[in-house]
Design a protein around this nucleic acid. Structure first.
Ligand SMILES: Nc1ccn([C@H]2C[C@H](O)[C@@H](COP(=O)(O)OP(=O)(O)OP(=O)(O)O)O2)c(=O)n1
Ligand SMILES: [Mg+2]
Ligand SMILES: [Mg+2]
Length: 508
DNA sequence: ATCCTCCCCTAC
DNA sequence: TAAGGTAGGGGAGGAT
């Protein structure tokens, strides 16, 4: 397991750190071999008067100690105005129930890393309560419990931590996975041909909150924290009527309102998402024990060994049961591997299903935009665009050697395989965590050193809690900090971190 | 060769 | 006002 601490938003604070105290700034200054007394001092309350006096040994404290022991060398760039930071722990040592087995896992590289990020947006120079235009109420300045409250309202925190909750809830299930992988030593001799179903809820966050309002189903609806037509709150999910206007996850609510004035905004209901996700997985587990969770609204099901005559009938049954138990629609893709099943789901949406038989794979991919392939995001798409490649058919014309030369060994091979519909991954259980971390990149503003220390401490405590929850210890500790870029403007997003450079240091 | 650190990229 | 988290894959380049 890893631990990650994210520290976000400290404008001019880092300057102070740099000028006055070694601490964090020292930690990052390493390049010039500053001997930071201990970069992490800032994280250790005991150094500052033992705020945690009564608390039993905390992981966070241990972490701090580690850093102390190591004379971390960090230095704050002379420019000094830090903006955000992040901390994480990687390759944890599995402690199963508290007993440390660290010595027992020689074969598995156990690392424990904690990374801390520190972000800051506004960097008004002086420290007074400036806070610039955005010196809002809800920031690390005003709220001592900011981190805790923030996580309660963060959608990304919700979906980012969902997997761990799922694992705990369904760990009792027998996983008879990997029987297949064992017998797959000779992959292609499987007489049975693999069949995968990929299931994904339609506009999940919206579907759940309007599931009892049928009259809203053909009106444009989105889930967002704010309904302010000038606001920079982000749309989390938009239903399909709203998507016709161009409303989609991630855009600002003001932009959504601009292109869709009658857009109806609903608030989040995280508890309902949790409940519906449980119902969703209950249905899947009922039909098959080879279920791989992707997220709270999405999973792969390997039905190869079910002896099902018609996978489409099964998919249809699953979708029907999901709707009957949750009141929400799901779509499904059926194909011979995970890649094609996932792509098929996209075609199937909304409220549909799609089967792509092996003989149809080539034509299915021929005109498909490369951006639709999982693993190809904005950057890769742009790079390929520069080579005049925009569809899988065009990508297929490039040799594997050439792709590997341009994009690296693994990435090149992935591109070559995916453009041909080849995917050798197996549906399986989620393996043990490799890292655990926490970060905050919104609302982070410090007016003094105390603010930043408190914030970092909270982040450490959060990571400590999560490590404990996993029954695991870390081995490598990573601290990441976001620092306001030299001439960065005010963040576009309210209370955002704006244009930052990222700094990272880790110790083992 | 393999590992390690410090990133970037991606997905939900 | 608004809640830009979390984790894994992988590449570059250096240490071993
Ligand atoms: N940038 C994003 C992407 C997703 N989510 C949340 C809201 C989504 O409802 C949920 C599931 O993500 P999906 O990618 O499955 O998107 P939807 O379910 O909303 O729509 P679709 O019908 O395309 O699956 O995760 C989010 O908050 N922000
Ligand atoms: Mg979905
Ligand atoms: Mg999904």
């Amino acid at each position: 397991m890893d631990f990650i601490f994210l520290f976000l938003g400290v404008p001019y604070q880092l300057e102070q750190l740099a000028n006055n105290q070694p601490k964090v700034s020292a930690f990052f200054a390493a390049q010039n071999r500053l001997v930071a007394e201990d970069a992490l001092n800032i994280m250790d309350p005991s150094l500052k008067g033992g705020t945690l006096a009564g608390v039993p040994v905390k992981d966070g404290e241990q972490i701090n100690r580690q850093f102390e022991d190591r004379d971390c060398q960090i230095e704050e760039p002379s420019s000094s105005s830090g903006k955000s930071s992040e901390v994480r722990m990687a390759e944890p040592i599995n402690t199963e129930d508290g007993s440390s087995i660290s010595n027992e896992l020689p074969s598995s590289p156990s690392q424990f890393s904690v990374s801390v990020k520190d972000n800051q947006n506004e960097s008004k120079s002086p420290a007074p309560s400036i806070a610039g235009p955005s010196n809002p109420h809800h920031s690390t300045i005003e709220d001592p419990n900011f981190v805790e409250n923030y996580f309660k309202s963060s959608r990304l925190h919700f979906i980012g931590t969902w997997r761990n909750r799922y694992r705990k809830r369904f760990c009792h299930l027998p996983n008879e996975f990997s029987c297949r992988s064992v017998s797959t030593a000779n992959a292609s001799d499987n007489s049975q041909k693999t069949t995968i179903i990929h299931v994904d809820m339609d506009c999940f966050f919206v579907s759940v909150v309007i599931r009892n309002d049928p009259e809203l189903h053909d009106k444009p609806v989105a889930v967002c924290h704010s309904d302010n037509p000038k606001g920079t709150a982000e749309i989390s999910s938009a239903n399909y009527p709203a998507r016709e206007y161009g409303v989609k996850a991630g855009i600002f609510v003001r932009d959504a309102k601009a292109i869709c004035p009658h857009l109806i905004i609903f608030p989040y209901n995280f508890q309902a998402y949790e409940e519906v996700a449980d119902q969703f997985y209950n249905v899947l587990h009922k039909h098959c024990n080879k279920v791989q969770a992707v997220s709270c609204d999405e999973a792969f099901v390997d039905i190869t060994d079910l002896g099902e005559k018609d996978p489409e009938v099964l998919a249809s049954t699953i979708r029907k049961e999901i709707f009957e138990t949750t009141g929400c629609k799901a779509s499904a893709g059926i194909a011979g591997n995970m890649l094609m099943a996932r792509l098929a789901t996209r075609t199937a949406k909304p409220d549909g299903q799609c089967y792509v038989p092996p003989e149809r794979v080539d034509e299915y991919l021929q005109e498909l935009p490369i951006k639709a392939l999982p693993g190809i995001g904005y950057v890769l798409e742009e790079k390929l665009k520069k080579k005049n490649i925009s569809t899988c058919g065009q990508l297929r014309l490039i040799s594997k050697d050439s792709l590997q030369k341009d994009f690296g060994k693994k990435t090149g091979e992935m591109l070559w395989n995916y453009s041909r519909g080849i995917d050798n991954r197996l549906v399986g259980v989620i393996q043990e965590n490799k890292s655990v971390g926490a970060e905050v990149n919104w609302g982070v503003r410090f007016k003094d050193l105390q603010d930043s220390q408190n914030f970092l401490l909270k982040l450490c405590e959060e990571v400590s809690l999560r490590l404990r929850g996993c029954g695991v210890q870390g081995r490598t500790f990573t601290l990441k900090i976001k620092k306001r870029r030299k001439d960065a403007l005010e963040p576009i997003k309210y209370m955002g971190c704006g244009d930052c450079e990222n700094l990272s240091r880790s110790i083992t």
